[in-house]
Amino acid sequence: MKIFQAIIIILIWAIPIFSIRKTYKKMDNEEKQDVKDELKNPSFLLFVFTCIGFQLFITGNISGNKIMQHIGAGLVFSGFVSGCVGAFRQRNFKKGIGSMLAGGIGAVIYFI
């Protein structure tokens, strides 16, 4: 069973990394520059932290590591909060309220 868990954890981290790398190599120079500019955007970084948090959460669940699971849940929750704030700043109230509800429901489910 431990080998199966290790394979799943490797796939959780390897598939996104290699697919992003492959996609980046296929881009032309203008698209690569757009990606570099987008990576400097703080709201995009919060989205990346949310994705990494979700991966940490799943990895913690699979491996049984509670600290990793809690760190991942915290990153996901902070991503929802920052998404909510960003949506309210852009005057997109429905998206902000939806993000707030999703983050709140997820936090309640996690802590129960």
Rank of each mutant, 00 (worst) to 15 (best):
M1C: 04
M1S: 13
I3R: 07
F4M: 06
I8T: 13
I10T: 09
W13V: 14
A14W: 08
I15K: 07
I15Q: 06
P16I: 14
P16A: 04
S19E: 08
I20L: 11
I20E: 05
T23I: 03
Y24V: 06
Y24T: 07
K25V: 06
K26A: 08
K26D: 01
K26N: 05
D28S: 05
N29D: 10
N29V: 07
E31C: 01
E31D: 10
E31Q: 13
K32A: 04
Q33K: 09
Q33E: 14
D34S: 12
L39R: 09
K40C: 02
P42E: 05
S43T: 14
S43Q: 08
S43H: 01
L46N: 09
L46P: 00
L46Y: 12
L46A: 01
L46G: 00
F49L: 12
G53A: 03
F54W: 12
L56T: 06
F57R: 11
I58W: 11
T59G: 06
T59E: 00
T59Q: 03
G60S: 03
N61L: 09
N61E: 01
I62L: 07
S63R: 02
N65T: 10
N65M: 05
N65I: 13
N65G: 03
K66L: 03
I67C: 00
I67V: 10
M68F: 15
Q69F: 10
H70M: 04
G72E: 00
A73H: 05
A73D: 00
G74F: 08
G74I: 13
L75S: 04
L75V: 05
F77Y: 11
S78C: 10
F80T: 10
F80M: 10
V81L: 14
S82L: 07
C84Y: 03
G86F: 14
R89K: 15
R91G: 01
N92S: 12
N92Y: 08
F93A: 07
K94L: 12
K94G: 02
K95A: 14
S99E: 02
M100F: 15
L101H: 09
L101F: 15
A102K: 02
G104I: 06
G104E: 11
G106A: 15
V108S: 08
V108A: 14
I109C: 06
Y110P: 13
